[in-house]
Simulated scan of single mutants.
Amino acid sequence: MQKIVIVSDTHIPVRAKKLPQRLVEECQSADFIIHAGDWQTLDVYYELSAYTETDGVTGNVDPWGIADRFGKKKIFAFGDLKIGVIHGDGSRKTTEQRAYEAFAEDEVDIIVFGHSHIPVKRKMDGITLFNPGSPTDKRKQPQYSFGLLEIGDSWELKHVFFDKES
């Protein structure tokens, strides 16, 4: 069984000074971490990669160093499972529509995106669209969130919701 943590919109140090403990707990036992952009600093990458292999894409508020390192769009393969990752920012259409259209020419099973900070998990034309939300900036959402993907003979993708630490 492979365990993949999916996170986006950490916005550190602007929205939080550090990664929340609930996220760190899952990262400690993860096999891979996917970040869908708006890291805001490479320190987030360095911290996450101390737990396990970490990769992702750049978001609209990320500096050039992050953009140069990660790029705007990626596809990860875990066995037969293909995951497209994009931040989802842009103009016109919804974040979800932009993310979906970005992979129109690609064969993917899951599209991971961020930007809106709104947790999403739904199917569109047989593809699972997934926004993990944000672990540090929930905006108008009731809780903070990130995603967990477990891959074995089949795969299960879910949100992890939590309240701010005291």
Rank of each mutant, 00 (worst) to 15 (best):
G37I: 02
I75K: 15
H115A: 11
T95P: 01
F70E: 04
V120S: 10
Y100H: 06
H117R: 10
D106E: 11
W39T: 05
K93Y: 01
P142G: 13
R98K: 14
P20K: 13
S91T: 14
V85K: 14
I83E: 13
Q40A: 11
A36T: 04
E25V: 03
Y100P: 00
L148R: 09
R139L: 09
L129C: 06
K73A: 03
K123T: 02
P20F: 08
D31A: 02
I86P: 11
K18S: 10
T128D: 07
E53V: 03
G79Y: 06
V112F: 06
E96G: 07
V85D: 08
S91K: 15
D109T: 02
I111Q: 07
T128N: 11
S116R: 08
P135V: 14
G59V: 01
H115E: 03
G56E: 03
K121V: 00
F130P: 01
S134F: 01
D62G: 12
D109H: 14
L129D: 01
A36W: 02
T54F: 04
I127M: 08
H87D: 06
V108Y: 08
G147Q: 05
W64L: 14
G133S: 09
V57K: 14
K18P: 00
P135N: 14
A104Q: 08
T95I: 09
K82R: 15
K17P: 00
K93I: 00
A104L: 08
E26F: 09
V44H: 09
K74V: 02
P142R: 15
I66S: 04
G147C: 01
G71M: 04
L148V: 05
D43G: 12
L81G: 13
F103N: 03
V120L: 12
V57S: 12
S145A: 15
D62S: 10
G84F: 03
G147K: 11
L48M: 10
G114Q: 04
P119R: 09
G84T: 04
P20G: 12
T128L: 15
F78Q: 09
E25K: 15
T128C: 10
P63M: 12
G71H: 10
A67Q: 07
T58F: 04
K17I: 00
E25L: 07
E101T: 05
E47Y: 05
I151L: 11
A50E: 08
R122M: 06
P142T: 14
L81A: 13
G133I: 02
A102C: 03
I83V: 12
D55F: 05
E47A: 08
I118T: 13
I75G: 14
D31M: 01
D137H: 11
L19I: 10
R139D: 04
D43N: 14
A77L: 02
D125M: 12
G79F: 01
R22W: 00
Q143M: 05
L148C: 01
E150R: 13
I118P: 00
S116Y: 02
T58E: 06
D62A: 12
D43Q: 12
W64G: 11
